[in-house]
Amino acid sequence: MTKHDLSNVRGDHRILCDFVASGSRVLDIGCGTGELLELLIDTRGVDGRGFDTSQKGVNEAVARGLSVVQGDADNDLAAYPDDAFDYAILSHTLQATMDPKQVLEQLLRIGKKVVVSFPNFGHWRNRMQLLFKGRMPVTDYLPYEWYDTPNIHFCTIRDFVALSEEVHAKVIKAEALDARGQRIGFNAPWWVWNLIGDQAVFLLERK
């Protein structure tokens, strides 16, 4: 029996779970209080470890019995050996790192496969706000003002595809999600997803 009813789970978490094979070794970077990690352990039986910058979140996760350490993706990933995990997961964290490219490279080094989810800055509503209001977009997904956002490195879906190319990663799977966190269930060119996807989940591996 699992504690989780998948229908109530955050959209990107549900897709992340689909991307991860049962019983694998997983590192969740930016795991917060361990919600996704617990979901993966309960539904996929993974050997899961977590990693987060917030000591408060980490303490809560450890008190829940999860293996989580405090650290930041920019500095502390270097300690992990190559291929240490079957999956390195970066859920809604890439845009908050100092050096997303280097972080992605580290992920591809320590994980045999890499799962990344991120909010799509290229969504049409963001474009409209910038175009018509001339202000940085503030939406349900991106609720911060430009001056207090932890999201210092936004990207669009097409930007991420380009970055993957640059770090020699192969896209195995990708999904775009709509505003309700539901999978956009048709195949379309990147530029279409880039317009209508509120967020995206990518499964990558080294080329």
């Binding site: 050997d47 470890r49 000591q55 980490v58 303490n59 450890v62 999860l66 293996s67 989580v68 350490v69 405090q70 650290g71 502390d76 300690a79 992990y80 050996p81 240490a84």
Partner: peptide, 16 residues
């Protein structure tokens, strides 16, 4: 903690 991670060990770390 860094050494344990480098060794691939299962580790939790809490600063109180």
């Amino acid at each position: 903690v860094r050494a344990l991670n480098a060794a691939g060990a299962n580790v939790s770390f809490v600063e109180i």
